[in-house]
Measured scan of single mutants.
Amino acid sequence: TGYYDVLGVKPDASDNELKKAYRKMALKFHPDKNPDGAEQFKQISQAYEVLSDEKKRQIYDQ
């Protein structure tokens, strides 16, 4: 599964769309709200870390 799929956004998503999707998913799977969501929360955080950084995103998109 790709990072875009993890966040539920298209590859041409804007920074604002990425942030909005990340916040929505992070709230849904945060371990405090969803004890079984810890692994998914890590994936969401990693996806956002890469896609929100312009240089990392360019490398990922290659």
Rank of each mutant, 00 (worst) to 15 (best):
R57G: 02
D5H: 09
D61Y: 06
M25C: 13
S45A: 12
G2K: 12
K28M: 12
Y48N: 03
K33I: 14
F41A: 05
A47T: 00
L7N: 01
Q43Y: 11
G2V: 06
V9P: 02
F29I: 04
K10T: 10
F41P: 01
N34T: 08
D36G: 10
L7Q: 01
A26K: 10
Q46R: 11
I59G: 07
Y3K: 00
V9Y: 00
E54L: 13
Q40A: 09
D5P: 02
G37D: 09
T1M: 14
P35W: 03
D32G: 08
P31W: 02
D15K: 14
P31Y: 06
P31G: 07
E17A: 06
E39M: 07
A13K: 01
D5Q: 11
K19R: 14
K20V: 14
K33C: 14
Y48T: 02
D36T: 12
T1D: 08
D12R: 03
L27M: 13
Y48L: 04
D5I: 06
P31K: 08
Y48S: 03
D36K: 14
I44V: 08
F41Q: 02
Q46I: 14
D61F: 01
E39I: 08
Y4G: 01
G37I: 06
A21H: 03
K10G: 10
P31M: 06
E54I: 13
I59S: 10
A21Q: 04
Q43K: 13
D53K: 09
Y4K: 01
V9L: 08
H30F: 05
Q46C: 12
F29K: 00
V50I: 13
T1A: 11
S52F: 05
K24A: 12
K28A: 13
T1N: 11
H30L: 07
Q46H: 12
K55R: 14
D32Q: 08
R23S: 10
S45M: 14
V6Q: 05
P11A: 07
Y60S: 05
N34E: 04
L7G: 00
A47Y: 01
P11I: 08
G2S: 15
V6M: 11
R23D: 15
K28E: 12
V6G: 01
K28V: 10
Y3V: 02
K33V: 14
N16D: 15
A47P: 01
Q40H: 12
M25N: 07
Y4W: 03
S14G: 07
D15C: 15
A47V: 08
K10D: 09
F29T: 03
Y48D: 02
A26Y: 15
I44Q: 00
P11T: 07
T1Q: 13
P31N: 09
D36R: 09
Y22H: 03
K42I: 11
H30T: 04
Y60H: 02
Q43H: 08
E39V: 05
P11Q: 10
Q46W: 10
L18M: 03
R23G: 11
Y48Q: 03
R57K: 06
N34I: 05
